[in-house]
């Protein structure tokens, strides 16, 4: 039978992590499904479990002029209720799961689960978010796109815990989010796009686009962004076809139980076109 640990502090949690081979349990909304067993029986966790969801030290959102630091045990509900956080950043989060899922689910769990369909990820990629991981010997910091290395895999070491997610505290003239799923609530994304842009005097001065569920990880369209930055709004119409071809080259959607390759690329291109042609004009 696997053992359980419920530390009183982050430091204690880090020592447990160092001295034992344990699985971290945050809100539990991924691991309880992944390891669920027959009705009426306990979840079959593969190894000892380190429960951290209760740790108060990681339950705050700290906001400075330059960044928003989200603790690892902050639930989606807590993030949504925080009035200091810009509405653009809340859009992807308010569509995750359902009321009950948002009460327990966390950014940290979504990131460490590292699904290409994780709905916090397109936004975090587009905003150049960072994650901080800690062990008893110190901390390491990663850009989100370097931290996630493939479906279900990250740079997290066995003795580390993800403690914070850092989002630069900036506003943009335009932001866009669209998630396409089977139903409105509790649906895993078939395709999703998060994008931001700054348009100043009819010129695009910054743009960042990230796509979910169209490859082994979320994809940032850096080549496309570089091509668009500096363009006049009036040029976008002329560029759109070549831009969409670049996007099509970059994404690698697959057929699976939720959708097909063809559907995914069609919808991804449509969403990006909608952002570039319609939303940017608003």
């Amino acid at each position: 039978m696997v053992r359980s640990f419920k530390p009183a502090s982050l430091l204690e949690a880090l020592h447990i992590r160092k001295d034992n081979d344990v699985m971290v349990y945050g809100g539990g909304s991924d691991v309880m499904i992944k390891y669920r067993s027959w009705s009426g029986t306990p979840a079959q966790f593969p190894k000892d479990v380190l429960y951290i969801g209760h740790l108060e030290e990681l339950k705050s959102i700290d906001i400075s002029d330059s960044e928003i630091a989200i603790g690892a045990t902050v639930s989606y509900a807590q993030f949504l209720q925080d009035e200091r956080i810009p509405i653009e950043y809340k859009r992807p989060i308010e569509q995750i799961g359902s009321v009950a899922i948002r009460n327990i689910g966390t950014f940290a769990g979504n990131i460490c689960n590292a699904s290409p369909a994780g709905d916090t990820l397109p936004m975090l990629y587009a905003l150049n978010a960072k994650v901080i991981v800690m062990s008893t010997v110190g901390k390491r910091e990663f850009a989100i796109e370097n931290f996630i290395t493939g479906p279900g895999s990250t740079c997290l070491k066995n003795d580390e815990i993800l403690t914070h997610i850092i989002i630069p505290n900036k506003t943009y003239s335009h932001s866009y989010y669209c998630k396409v799923g089977t139903r409105k609530a509790n649906a895993i994304s078939k395709v999703s796009v998060f994008a931001i842009a700054d348009v100043f005097k009819h010129q695009v001065t910054d743009i960042r686009i990230a796509i979910g569920s169209c490859g082994p990880t979320v994809i940032r369209l850096k080549d496309v962004e570089a091509k668009i930055i500096g363009s006049k709004m009036s040029d976008l119409d002329l560029m759109i076809e070549s831009v969409l071809m670049m996007v099509d080259d970059k994404i690698v959607p697959i057929d699976d139980v939720r959708s097909t390759k063809i559907y995914r690329s069609k919808v991804a291109l449509n969403l990006i076109e909608a952002f570039l042609i319609k939303e940017l004009r608003q």
Binding site: K6, M32, V49, A100, I101, N103
Partner: peptide, 17 residues
């Protein structure tokens, strides 16, 4: 759970202490 709606099928009892 502490006034918030949750699905009890997703909660390991250790986190309810």
């Amino acid at each position: 759970m502490n006034g918030k709606l949750v699905n009890s099928c997703l909660i390991a009892i250790a986190s309810v202490d």
